[in-house]
C-alpha cells in the first residue's frame, strides 16, 4: 500500500496542482488526471530517441545503450529516422555547418518531442566556447532543450539519470496543456541558407 501511495503521489500531485490552478471542475480533474496517468506512462516508458551522435559523446551514448548499462530495459530504442522518434539526444559538438541540418531534423520530428543536450559541447559549446569560430555555443541556440546533461563526456550513469529526469518531466505533463510548444516554427533560429 505504501508503494502504491508513493507512486500515486509522484504522478497525481503535480497534475492536481496544475488542474487546481486552471480551476477545472473536480470531475474534469479526476478524469484528466486518470487519462494523463495512462498516457504519460505510455509516453515515458517508450521514449524512442533519434540518436544524433556527432562526436565523442556519441560513444558514451552507444555505451549506455549497450549491454552493461542497457537502455532497452527502459523501453528506449534508438531510431535512425526523426520521423519515428520522440526524443532527440544531441550528443556532441554542433558546428555551424551542421546546425541547419540539426534544425531541419528537429522539425521533422512529430510532436510530442523532447530534446536532451548530452555533454558540454551541446550544453554550451564546452571546451570550444572560448576560441572556436565554427562551433555553436550550445544547441539551445537553435532548438529548445528539455534536459541538459553536463560532462565531457558524461558517464553512462549521467545519461541514465538525465533520461529518468525526462521521464519525470513527461509524467508531469497533461493532456490539458497546449500540445505545441509556443513559438517554435521553421526558420526561427535566424538561419537563411544561401540560394533560398
Amino acid at each position: 500500500m505504501d508503494l502504491i501511495k508513493s507512486l500515486k503521489s509522484l504522478t497525481e500531485e503535480p497534475l492536481r496542482r496544475a488542474a487546481r490552478e486552471r480551476k477545472d471542475s473536480p470531475l474534469a480533474v479526476r478524469f484528466i488526471s486518470i487519462v494523463d496517468k495512462v498516457v504519460n506512462t505510455g509516453k515515458a516508458c517508450s521514449v524512442w530517441p533519434v540518436q544524433f551522435g556527432l562526436a565523442c559523446c556519441a560513444i558514451e551514448m552507444i555505451a549506455t545503450a549497450a549491454a552493461r548499462y542497457d537502455l532497452d530495459r527502459f523501453g528506449i530504442i534508438m531510431r535512425p529516422s526523426p520521423r519515428q522518434s520522440d526524443c532527440m539526444i544531441v550528443a556532441g559538438t554542433v558546428t555551424a555547418k551542421m546546425a541547419p541540418v540539426l534544425e531541419r531534423l528537429y522539425h521533422q520530428m512529430p510532436e510530442p518531442k523532447w530534446v536532451i543536450a548530452l555533454g558540454n559541447c551541446a550544453v554550451s559549446g564546452g571546451r570550444f566556447y572560448q576560441d572556436a569560430y565554427s562551433v555553436v555555443k550550445g544547441v539551445d541556440r537553435i532548438i529548445p532543450v528539455d534536459i541538459y546533461i553536463p560532462g565531457c563526456p558524461p558517464r553512462p550513469e549521467s545519461l541514465l539519470d538525465g533520461l529518468l529526469k525526462l521521464h519525470d518531466k513527461i509524467r508531469g505533463e497533461s493532456i490539458a496543456d497546449d500540445p505545441v510548444r509556443e513559438g517554435i516554427r521553421p526558420g526561427m533560429s535566424g538561419y537563411e541558407p544561401a540560394g533560398e
Binding site: A96, K97, A99, S124, G125, Y129, Q130, D131, Y133, S134, V135, V136, K137, R141, I142, S189, G190, P193, A194
Partner: peptide, 30 residues
C-alpha cells in the same frame, strides 16, 4: 570545411571572431 557563404578567412592572423552571429557568439553568462 566551412559552410557556404562564410565571410572572412579564419586562419589568417587578423581574422575577427564572429561575435555578432546568433549561434557562434559568446555571451556574458558564460
Amino acid at each position: 570545411l566551412l559552410p557556404e557563404g562564410w565571410k572572412g578567412y579564419p586562419l589568417r592572423k587578423d581574422y575577427e571572431y564572429p561575435d555578432d552571429h546568433p549561434w557562434l557568439s559568446r555571451d556574458e553568462l558564460h
